[in-house]
Nucleic acid binder design. Sequence first.
DNA 1: TCTGGGGTCCTAGGACCC
DNA 2: TCTGGGGTCCTAGGACCC
Length: 430
Amino acid sequence: MSRVGLIDINNFYVSCERIFRPDLQNTPVVVLSNNDGCVVSRSNEIKKLGVNMASPYFKIKDELDKAGAVAFSSNYTLYGDISGRVMNILAEYGPIEIYSIDEAFLDVSHVLPSQLIQFGKEIKDRLRRDLSLPVCVGFAETKTLAKVANEIAKEDSKKGGLVYNGVISLVENPQIDELLESLNVADVWGIGRQNVLKVRQKGIYSAKDLKYSSQDWIKANLAITGLKIVQELNGQNVTEITSTSDPRKGIVSSRSFGKPVTTFQGLQEAVSTYITRASEKLRKQKSVASYISVFVMTNRFDRSNYYSNSQGATLSIPTNYTPELVKQAFKLLEKIYQPGMQYKKAGVAFWGLLDEDKTFQIEDLFTDNQALEKSNLKQKSISKAVDKLNRKYGSGSIVLASNGLKQAWKVKSDQRSPNYTTDWDEILRV
DNA sequence: TCTGGGGTCCTAGGACCC
DNA sequence: TCTGGGGTCCTAGGACCC
């Protein structure tokens, strides 16, 4: 029987901000999305106010101000760095699978069931001591049950953590069904808005109801993913922990604009900038893209004038060379650009990612393979040099002219905290 | 005025082939 | 010329996650 833990940092972005602002420990705090648009992380005080995840900031700003809340623009550089430190610590306790920026599965088959609570407390104390981060830990026999366990611990910690104190184990726990009954089916991992509606009609309201539901009915109505969830709730292991992180299958870069873009050139600047960012990621994981797509859209909340469109193309020669990808992207952009629109967002995506080092012999009568090889090498060395300079002198030091110099459309983040851990100029002074 | 971004997995349906 | 079944591959879109 396998045993797995799920470690999840509470209110991660908010908690990252509080590391360097201990004075905000009991103050209501939110972290906002790009352009300071939505609330994406909330402290417990904010949750108690009834502010929902992804609430538009402009709608609740007054209420938050009245409550004395502090709002931060998101600082992904900071959160990424803290996340790396968390994962390094967790890896000391066993094989981990990094699931997201703030949570990881931990293989704890080497820990006796009777020792799990103590083990979890050690992890919790360690993260509190070394990084000042609050965390919940759930142990169980499957990943889905570990998520459930963590959810129960989290609910409890919102109320002050009197019962479980952030750590709970469902392994050989005689009260497991009672605990599952206390959890809303909507809080089960993989049961989203649509699935909730379906299962409620069948009289399934709690995680326990779901556990004992008809697997035939689930398979017919929630498909294979639903069936796997039910099997895992019953302690049957269908998803394994995978500690090797696979390369991405697709890479997307998109942003809403700080202010609307109306000109073709403005869109070109944005698309060029997003291609630059995405192809850096592509080269970092040593991949080339064989398919590229570009999309644009106007404000989706303005129904009367809404326009969105996308175009994609297969690349006859897969590449990760920024100038070539920009060229292709501009061709696609031309097809979807319509004058007279107030564009609010644009994005690019790469799919069909292939290993960069696997050499492709192009079986094409009209391609001069030797010349191709030569220009490939040249492109590679240019990319290498640019990436190196940008790493050394900061991202954006060398860019294509097509990215534009002024970038009037750039995202706003007026309330970003300093990069305490990654930038010498912004380090905390004591 | 102001409403995020980046992923994965699955399914249905079309095109094509034998 | 018409007819049938079965398989694969690709793409678009839906649902979900954090």
